[in-house]
Amino acid sequence: MAEPQMREVAFRGGGFVLSPRRGAAAVFFALLLALWELAIRAGWISPLFLPAPSAVTTALWELALAGTLGLHVGQSLARIAAGWSIGTIAGLGVGFAMGIWSMSRAIGVPAVSALFPIPKIALLPLLILWLGIGEPSKIATIALGVFFPTAIAAYSGIDGVPRNLIRMGQSFNLPWLAILRKIVLPGALPGILAGFRITASIALILLVAAEMIGAQYGIGAFILSAGNLMQTDQLLAGVVLLSVLGLAIGTVLSRLERWLLGWR
């Protein structure tokens, strides 16, 4: 009988594994911007409908020189800081109560479920009626939008804290407040910080909406007036500002997560 033939076993394990590709994103965006610029310079698209990146940059630069850029961004930041803080503090308070006490849970869950799905923009006219057209109604809209997701993140975060850790705390006679501070709070923190990501983007959306009614300064007001005057380069400059603002908030939150959740 002949010697059996030797064959190599074919490799079948490749694919479905992702590895980092450094610089790919930068090249893609550079190409996209170049194509965009080219499309307008070549006259394929009217600059009125879509201004070139260079025109948007110029608009931003002029805005900065005139000093109004700081005014708009400053006002927006102040509103978002106030609204987000109020909504977050209230949401954490209610969420913790719902996570800890049966009675607040029994009342809170149906209440939150009923009120959470309402788009808060729909309440803006009502809030203006109650609080006037000035700052309070804008801040209240943002706070209201931030409140519900924060409450939900907090109480489901507390639900996620392993019961055996709480039992452990009790078995060592830890006082109630110490269990809350040293076991429940850090255990719920990952869920709460994930909630912050959601509420930050909600706050940004509501900021723009609220600033489109009765605001002189603010990124939303700026975008609205640019749109009314068909100044599309300025309009896009405002959109770029929003994107940068969102990115900045996201970066801050990532830092916060790395700092607070390093143990994961």
């Binding site: 055996n164 850790l165 039992r167 452990m168 705390g169 060592f172 006679n173 830890l174 006082p175 110490a178 040293k182 076991i183 850090p186 255990g187 959740l261 143990w263 994961r264």
Partner: peptide, 21 residues
């Protein structure tokens, strides 16, 4: 059985937990 250690505390911190109060 499941150790019940706090994952956000170091070995030292976990051992210190029942002493702190």
């Amino acid at each position: 059985q499941d150790f019940a250690l706090l994952p956000w505390r170091s070995v030292e911190g976990n051992v210190a937990l029942p002493l702190e109060h």
